[in-house]
């Protein structure tokens, strides 16, 4: 009996949203293949979250070596389960951990791996054909695995509809044993800092991004501010963009120029050398729209640009353009949204 495996990533014991997309993609595939969908959940709290997943079965390992989802024990376990059950395909969210896990164990079991996979097409010989953006999104590559070995896929974020939640799903849970003992593992997690409270760029349905234009803040820096442009931009991210983001439930993004100038942390950088995002709504404020920035946000569903230069390249990509000073438009937008949610 073959199956489709979906690795479900958790952070601090809670399922990350992109895992639901992987389950959604898995459900579509198992319907076509007529095989069961098997969820794999490792680490702390695995059994509790597993029973609520939209899957036919869950394989669960809560051994303490898997806490924090360290790569080596997770990959060894995945490889063992693949060897035992010979699934048709193994899906995982295209997160850092998802990619590492699938690449590591694909090497163990001799499976093909496609990353950033969107649009999975099952072909008559059983191979899975997928598309992914290459050359910074300027081209699309179509590739497939080969039949006769498991096909591993890391999915592009926000490219698949999430699985419908199952209330009282009571998914049958099978406990499995770890493969590696404590002393077989060369790495050790010694400290964890969580930003789980913030909306993360990869999951966000809405992103509000700021660029070099953030330094045009009319607010006056205090006399002791070491650099007035940095102070103005940081103040703008905090007091102008953040209120809009809160109103929209959005994550904060940034251009590389803003990051390199020290306005905001690299974790927020969108683009070729930052994060690739694909929210429903992307609002670019004071960003010119260089090709390398576009590489990170081009696939957003609706793009809004706020820029005082009507010639900025971002207006050739955006759906809606608001030409003007972001420090006037963003507060007006925040106020209008607030009035709307107050009235609604």
């Amino acid at each position: 009996m073959s199956a489709v495996f979906v690795w479900v990533e958790t952070v601090a014991g809670a399922v990350v949203p992109l895992s639901q997309e992987a389950l959604g993609a898995g459900a579509a595939l198992t319907a076509e293949l007529q095989v069961p969908l098997v969820a794999l959940v490792f680490g702390e709290n695995a059994a509790a979250v597993a029973s609520d997943l939209a899957a036919d079965e869950a394989l669960v390992c809560e051994d303490e070596t898997l806490t924090g989802l360290r790569l080596e024990p997770c990959a060894a376990l995945l490889a063992k389960l693949v060897r035992e059950r010979q699934p048709h395909a193994v899906l995982a969210p295209g997160t850092i951990r998802g990619r590492e896990l699938l690449a590591f164990s694909a090497a163990d079991v001799g499976a093909s791996l496609q990353t950033e996979a969107g649009d999975i097409v099952l072909q008559s010989d059983g191979t899975l054909q997928v598309e992914r953006p290459v050359y910074a999104g300027k081209l699309t590559l179509t590739a497939s695995g080969s039949s006769g070995s498991a096909q591993f896929l890391c999915l592009r974020a926000r490219a698949f509809p999430p699985a419908a939640p199952r209330v009282d799903a009571d998914t049958p849970v099978t406990r499995v044993e770890p493969v590696l003992g404590k002393n077989d593992i060369a790495t050790k997690i010694v400290e964890v800092t969580s930003s789980a409270g913030e909306v993360s760029l990869g999951d966000a349905a809405t992103i509000v991004s700021g660029g070099r234009g953030m330094s045009a803040n009319p607010a006056q820096p205090p006399p002791d501010a070491p650099d007035s442009a940095i102070w103005k931009a940081q103040h703008g991210f905090e007091h102008t963009l953040t209120p809009l983001a809160i109103e929209l439930g959005a994550a904060i993004g940034a251009s590389r120029a803003a990051v390199d100038a020290g306005y905001i942390d690299y974790a927020h950088q969108v683009g070729q050398t930052g994060k690739v995002v694909s929210p429903d709504l992307y609002i670019a404020c004071g960003i010119s729209g260089a090709i390398q920035h576009q590489a990170g946000m081009r696939s957003s569903k609706t793009i809004v640009a706020i820029n005082r230069d009507p010639e900025a390249p971002i207006f050739r990509l955006a759906h809606y353009g608001l030409v003007g000073d972001l420090y006037e438009i963003v507060p007006a937008l925040t106020a209008a949204l607030r009035a709307r949610s107050g009235a609604g």
Partner: peptide
């Protein structure tokens, strides 16, 4: 090799230019 690369092509281009929303900031926002 287990992965077959099949084709490389340009993705469909979006044709429309941005719709520019004129007016005062409040009008643009609305």
């Amino acid at each position: 090799a287990l992965t077959m690369e099949m084709k490389l092509e340009e993705p469909p281009q979006r044709l429309a230019e941005a719709e520019l929303l004129p007016g005062t900031p409040a009008e643009q926002a609305a």
